[in-house]
Computed example of a mutant assay.
Amino acid sequence: MTNNTSYQAINWNAIEDMIDKLTWEKLTEQFWLDTRIPLSNDLDDWRTLSAAEKDMFGKVFGGLTLLDTLQSEDAIERLRLTARTQHEEAVLNNIQFMESVHAKSYSSIFSTLNSKAEIEQIFNWTNNHEVIQYKALKINDIYKNGTDLQAKAASVLLESFLFYSGFFAPLYYLGNNKLANVAEIIKLIIRDESVHGTYIGYKFQLGFDQLPEAEQAELKNWVYEVLFDLYQNESKFTQMLYDEIGLTEKVKVFIRYNANKALQNLGFDPLFPDTADDVDPIVMNGISTGTSNHDFFSQVGNGYLLGAVEAMSDSDYTQWL
C-alpha cells in the first residue's frame, strides 16, 4: 500500500479490480442498523413459545454472536494482510464493521426477549460449550496459522456455511407467522453474508488460479477435509439445538445445501447431494423475501431505501457477483 518515499492515497477513480468497486457499492447500498427494527413487536409471539423453543433460540443466537465476533475481531485482520488493492482493504473495512453490527444485533434481540439472568446464562453456555467452541477455535486456528488462501477459504466456510444452522430457526418461525422482526434482522444479515462470502470467495479464486496444479490439488483436498470435519461438528450442534423440537433433519438438509454454496463460492464442486429443492420451502421462501418492515416516521425501511431492496432468489443469495 505504500512505498519507501510516500504514503499512497486511495484513488477510487483508478480502479484495479472492478469487483472491489461493485462490492463497495453493494455493501453501502444495503447498509442497516438493528436500532431501526421494532423487536419489541415480537414479544407476544415470544410468550407463546415453549421453554424448549426459547432455549433453542437463546443458543442459536449465542452461537451466531460468537461467529460474528470472530469475523469482526480476527478474520478481517487476517484477510487485510493479503489485500491486493487499497480498494479491497476498504471493502474489508466495511465487512468488518458490518460483522460488528451483526454481533450487536443479537444482543438487541437478547435485551428485548430475555432477562438479565437468561442473557448471562446464554453467554456462559456460548463461551464454554465444546461443540460451539470447536468450530470457532478451528476457524480461528486457520486464521492464526494457515496460509493466506487457507484463511480466505476458512472465512468463506464460516460466512456461507457455519452461520446457517442458526439462521434456520428464525426463518422457519417466520414462515409460521412468528417472530417476524427477529427474522427481519436475520434476513438483513443473510443479505450481508451472501456478499461477504461471495467476495472473499472471488479473492480466493484469484489466488488459487495462480498456484501450480499440484498445489491446487493439495489445497482443494484440504478445503474438503476441513469442510467435512466442520460438517460433522455442525451435525452434533444441530442435534443438540433442534432434537427436542423435532427440526434436526430439516436443519441438516439446510446446512448441507449451504456447505455446497460455500464450495461454489470457492469455485469447487458440491460435496453433498442436497439442492434447493430439498430444503424446507418455508425456509427458502424466507430467504427469498425482501425486507418488509418500514419506519414511517423517518421514511426509512429496513433496507434503508439507499437502493431498492431486491428479493433474493436461490441463485443469487450467495452468488450475486
Results as ranks from 00 to 15, higher is better:
Met1Val: 12
Gln8Phe: 07
Asn11Met: 08
Asn11Cys: 11
Asn13His: 11
Ala14Tyr: 10
Asp17Tyr: 09
Lys21Ala: 14
Glu25Thr: 11
Glu25Ala: 13
Lys26Gln: 13
Glu29Asp: 15
Glu29Trp: 11
Phe31Arg: 11
Phe31Leu: 14
Trp32Ile: 04
Pro38Arg: 07
Pro38Leu: 06
Asp45Thr: 04
Trp46Asn: 00
Leu49Met: 12
Ala51Lys: 13
Met56Phe: 04
Phe57Tyr: 12
Gly58Glu: 00
Gly62Thr: 04
Gly62Gln: 01
Leu67His: 08
Thr69Leu: 11
Gln71Met: 09
Glu73Gln: 13
Arg78Trp: 05
Leu81Gln: 12
Leu81Tyr: 08
Thr82His: 12
Thr82Met: 09
Thr82Pro: 02
Glu88Tyr: 03
Glu89Pro: 03
Ala90Cys: 06
Leu92Arg: 05
Leu92Tyr: 10
Asn93Trp: 06
Asn94Ile: 15
Ile95Asp: 01
Phe97Trp: 08
Glu99Tyr: 06
Ser105Pro: 05
Ser108Trp: 11
Ser115Gly: 11
Glu118Ile: 07
Phe123Cys: 05
Asn124Glu: 12
Asn127Ala: 14
Asn128Gly: 13
Gln133Glu: 10
Leu137Asn: 15
Lys138Trp: 08
Ile139Gly: 00
Asp141Ala: 14
Ile142Val: 12
Tyr143Leu: 03
Gly146Asp: 00
Thr147Tyr: 05
Asp148Ile: 06
Asp148Phe: 10
Gln150Trp: 01
Gln150Arg: 05
Lys152Cys: 09
Ala154Glu: 01
Val156Asn: 00
Leu158Ile: 09
Leu162Ala: 02
Leu162Phe: 00
Leu162Trp: 03
Phe168His: 02
Tyr172His: 06
Tyr172Val: 02
Leu174Glu: 09
Leu174Gly: 06
Asn177Thr: 10
Ala180Asp: 11
Ala183Phe: 03
Ile185Gln: 03
Ile185Tyr: 05
Ile186Tyr: 05
Leu188Gln: 05
Leu188Cys: 06
Arg191Ser: 04
Thr198Cys: 11
Thr198Gln: 14
Ile200Thr: 11
Gly201Phe: 02
Gly201Ile: 03
Tyr202Ile: 06
Phe204Glu: 02
Asp209His: 09
Gln210Arg: 12
Pro212His: 10
Pro212Met: 07
Glu215Arg: 10
Gln216Leu: 03
Gln216Arg: 14
Lys220Tyr: 04
Trp222Asn: 00
Glu225Ala: 15
Val226Cys: 09
Leu227Asp: 01
Phe228Leu: 13
Asp229Leu: 12
Leu230Tyr: 01
Gln232Glu: 15
Gln232Ala: 14
Glu234Thr: 13
Thr238Phe: 03
Gln239Thr: 13
Leu241Cys: 07
Asp243Asn: 14
Ile245Pro: 00
Ile245Thr: 10
Gly246Val: 10
Thr248Met: 08
Thr248Val: 11
Glu249Pro: 02
Val251His: 05
Lys252Ile: 13
Lys252Arg: 11
Ala259Arg: 07
Asn260Cys: 01
Lys261Tyr: 08
Leu263Thr: 01
Gln264Leu: 13
Leu266Gln: 01
Leu266Cys: 02
Phe272Val: 03
Ala276Asp: 09
Asp277Ala: 15
Val279Thr: 04
Pro281Asn: 00
Ile287Cys: 02
Ile287Val: 15
Ser288Trp: 00
Ser292Asp: 13
Asn293Trp: 15
His294Trp: 13
Asp295Leu: 09
Asp295Arg: 09
Val300Ala: 11
Leu306Met: 09
Val309Arg: 10
Glu310Pro: 08
Ala311Asp: 14
Ala311Ser: 10
Met312Arg: 12
Thr318Trp: 07
Trp320Thr: 01
